[in-house]
Design a protein around this nucleic acid. Structure first.
Length: 664
RNA sequence: GGCGGCGUAGCUCAGUUGGCAGAGCAGGAGAAUCAUAAUCUUCGUGUCAGGGGUUCGAAUCCCUUCGCCGCCA
């Protein structure tokens, strides 16, 4: 049998999963895998967190933690929220485990052995204060074209021109503000350029791939593929397995996709068949499918296949169903601006299936789509509760009320009933072929059509009336309706697994398979009946809408007027003494003179200043803050300092203003 | 700036290789009372963003303007 290996993009362990991620990769993948599994296919779903790279080290610094602490935290949260949302993986690994490091290193060495990795001297900015080489976008300076003083190392945002960091005038480290210096360093490059033709030929055989994927690739072929550096001067990551590169790690984009392989190996070991991963990665008959969002297309359709070609022992992707983006309330999602719906937060308030439904029925398959809370509520109430939930409920309640919970058995089914059963089969067939093409949106519409069909049939047959006038006909109707419910529990399982489970409980069905759609099983008696979905009041979703609006507002500082500002009293103070607060490695206690009076300050700047450095310095202090006790010491004034990832700098006045001078 | 995408009914979205513009919701009318007042039937609606071109025929292909979005290793 053809095996299927499905991967979902490795989420970056630097934040929670939000609905955009779900729509882009994880939900479509989960639906596809659940469907294939119901069909009895040999399929596994592999994923894990991507835990290396500079952004994680920066988050760690910002939160005064180690990178390990950051990734441990998010690994747990991400894994947990996937589980609660019903996204099922056969293995959910992480790229920081030793197994992954080993596999990545072997991969590296193998590709190097084949001649596709080579070292090259490059000049890069190094920040002596941060003690590290700076990625392009962490350098700012004056743009040589337009004179914009805050241009980024890779591009000037004012005039839009591309830049090399070395061309910036007065370069500065974006992290600490220090002056970086050019240093020679050696990096290893992947010979991507030599795969251009091979990749082109390969993609031409993929006529069935989605338009957006092919489009992206052709753009890149036009530009021409260039070799890419695959090492970094960083401590956090997979060590480069070369004696001459002891201090380097792999660039995160290189080791991350190898995570698909190492996660599969971890899975094989876990189930006690350590060689089994090869059946998926090394067998030409296995279909490798990568589910990703559109931001990942170039990588999965070009760079990663080139890496696999270079390595030579693994299969290439058979399909890359990439989705577009999901907007939120009409605006693109933005984690930094707080404009997103995060999964852990959602799950505190609602059940998984309504969101699975909302996303799947309006999936961004061919273009960006929009998620709104209003629409979410409507989908839940008008579609899930009213059409699907009500059909199940009215039928089963009817059985309870009129047949004491025993499903009527029937010897014969009349023409109309048979027609319905034929319809079930053809809906099954259509859903099947739509899902094979990854068209989950249309597939779900078709599946829901079955509930609608049920309501129509129920209405036309009028069992509430035939129950008295023609009991046999009534029994038939209810029997057929129960068949429809049974079919719904199968056909909806990939999309709404929790709903499917509830229905199966009510119908006392323990095992289901896609083939059962040919003649859905009907139980003799039913279990306890309860409505499938509670209706959502408008307030429930308005609350959510307000939450994201407020958050977006907060990330933008509020405008204040001059009166408001003049309410803050800031004066120049001279630090007359300073000492570490006992039992703390960050707090410094200072006595500050403002000429006429003295005050005590406790400030969390000890990670970047030694007390003796501070004594004698003049700096601005807020002098009318409400005093607070910190570690038992009353802090009466607050020192002003620049606080940014990687550093804290107190402000020193220009010249020598007198103690106590007011700042306006 | 360059490249790419998008613009279809009041709203959210489908529209295969060019072949009479579609669905759901909202809105109007009716039927039914088993069911979470939940269902079912039925009705209207479009400068397919604007302009130009190719074609017997364009929402679809080409050019252009406007608007929105993304990417730029």
């Amino acid at each position: 049998m053809t095996k299927i290996l499905v991967t979902s993009a490795l989420p970056y362990a630097n934040g929670d999963i939000h609905i955009g991620h779900l729509a882009g990769a994880y939900l479509p993948a989960d639906i596809y895998v659940r469907f294939q599994r119901l069909k009895g296919q040999d399929i596994i779903h592999i994923c894990g967190t991507d835990e290396h790279g500079v952004p994680i080290t920066l988050t760690a610094e910002k939160e005064k933690k180690t990178p390990k602490e950051i990734v441990d935290y998010y690994y747990k949260r991400i894994k947990d929220s996937f589980e609660r949302f019903g996204i099922k993986f056969d293995n959910f690994s992480r790229t920081s485990i030793p197994l992954h490091h080993r596999v990545s290193q072997q991969f590296f060495l193998k590709v190097m052995e084949k001649g596709y990795i080579y070292p090259r001297e490059v000049e890069q900015y190094f920040c002596p204060r941060c003690q590290r080489f700076l990625p392009d976008r962490y350098i700012t300076g004056t743009c040589p074209h337009c004179g914009f003083p805050e241009a980024r190392g890779d591009q000037c945002e004012a005039c839009g021109r591309w830049l090399e960091p070395t061309r910036l005038k007065e370069p500065r480290c974006k992290i600490c503000g220090g002056v970086p210096e050019l240093r020679k360093t050696r990096h290893w490059f992947f010979r991507l350029s030599s795969f251009q033709n091979q990749l082109k030929d390969w993609i031409e055989t993929k006529g069935h791939w989605k338009e957006n994927v092919k489009n992206f690739c052709s753009g890149w072929f036009k530009e021409g593929l260039e070799d890419r550096p695959i090492t970094r001067d960083l401590k956090w990551g997979v060590k480069v397995p070369l004696a001459e590169a002891k201090e380097k790690v792999m660039y995160v984009w290189f080791d991350a996709p190898i995570g698909y392989i190492s996660s599969t190996i971890e899975w094989a070991e876990r189930i006690g068949q350590p060689e089994k991963w090869k059946e998926y990665w090394c067998d030409k008959d296995t279909r490798l499918i990568h589910f990703i969002g559109k931001d990942n297309i170039v990588f999965h359709a070009l760079v990663w296949p080139a890496m696999l070609m270079a390595h030579g022992e693994f299969i290439l992707p058979a399909d890359i169903p990439a989705n577009e983006f999901l907007n939120l309330e009409g605006k693109p999602m933005s984690t930094s601006r707080g404009w997103a719906v995060w999964l852990p937060e959602y799950l505190e308030e609602f059940d998984p299936d309504p969101l699975r439904y909302s996303i799947a029925i309006n999936a961004p398959q061919t273009r960006d789509a929009d998620f709104s809370w209003k629409d979410f509520r409507r989908r839940n109430n008008d579609e899930l509760a009213d059409i699907l939930g009500n059909f199940v409920n009215r039928t089963l309640k009817f059985i309870v009320n009129n047949y004491r919970g025993n499903v009527p058995a029937v010897g014969l089914i009349d023409h109309t009933g048979k027609e319905v059963i034929t319809q079930i089969r053809s809906v099954g067939k259509r859903v099947e072929s739509l899902l094979e093409r990854f068209d989950i949106k249309q597939a779900l519409r078709e599946a829901m059509g079955l509930a609608q069909l049920g309501n129509q049939y129920f209405d036309h047959q009028k069992p509430w009336s035939t129950h008295h006038s023609n009991p046999l006909a009534c029994e038939q109707t209810i029997h057929v309706c129960t068949k429809i419910i049974s079919a719904l529990s199968i056909i909806l399982e990939p999309f709404l697994p929790f709903t499917s489970e509830k229905i199966r409980k009510m119908l006392r069905l323990d095992r289901i398979s896609w083939d059962d759609l040919n003649d859905p099983k009907v139980p003799a008696t039913i279990g306890e009946v309860a409505p499938l979905y509670p209706k959502l009041e408008p307030e429930r979703v308005e609350l959510q809408l307000n939450k994201i609006r407020e958050r977006a507002q907060m990330s933008k500082p509020k405008e204040i007027d001059i009166e408001y500002f003049s309410g803050v009293e800031i004066r120049i103070g001279r630090i007359i003494s300073a000492e570490m607060v006992a039992g703390s490695d960050r707090l410094i206690r200072m006595e500050v003179s403002f000429g006429d009076f003295k005050r005590t300050a406790v400030a969390g700047i000890g990670s970047h200043y030694r007390p003796e450095e501070l004594v004698g310095k003049k700096a601005p202090f807020v002098t009318n803050l409400k005093p607070v006790k910190i570690r038992g010491i009353l802090s009466e004034v607050m020192i002003l300092a620049a606080d940014y990832p990687g550093g804290i700098k107190i402000l020193i006045p220009d010249g020598d203003p007198p103690e106590g001078a007011k700042i306006k």
